[in-house]
């Protein structure tokens, strides 16, 4: 699953946030299934060459939010029951939407015009 994740250390977003968001996306999008095991924190850290503490932080958040399950003596895995996947799917779009809205406002584009642009491009 790590090949589906792209971490950019120089991004303005902290690495743990990037990992968290992308793993949620993979779960919501179904690219990783319930019950699937995650590589260890150390393996993930080595794969991306990032501090294991940042990986730990992301995994911790995902466990706290119910996306992942920790079992004693076993690898962390994707939880069977996930927290409101649909709502999370919407929430993932908020940041992109906010950026689009900010750009539209800068360019003087109205909300109606924006909706039209989105509809047109959706069809393509």
């Amino acid at each position: 699953m790590l090949e589906f994740i792209n971490v950019n250390p120089s991004s303005g977003d902290p690495i743990y946030k990037q990992l968290h968001e992308q793993i949620v996306r993979l779960i919501v999008g179904g690219q990783i299934q319930a019950g699937e095991e995650l590589p260890s924190v150390r393996k993930i850290a080595e794969y991306f060459t990032v501090n294991p503490m940042t990986v730990s932080r992301a995994i911790g958040m995902l466990v706290d939010q119910g996306w992942l399950e920790r079992r004693r003596g076993q690898p962390t895995r994707v939880a069977e029951k996930q927290p409101q996947s649909m709502q999370q799917g919407h929430a993932l779009l908020h940041e992109g939407a906010d950026q689009l809205i900010q750009q539209a406002k800068q360019l003087g584009v109205s909300i109606d015009e924006l909706i039209e642009i989105l509809s047109n491009r959706w069809e393509q």
Partner: peptide, 10 residues
């Protein structure tokens, strides 16, 4: 090398 810091530093 700032990208090194971004990977490794706390």
């Amino acid at each position: 090398i700032t990208s090194d810091i971004e990977r490794v530093a706390t």
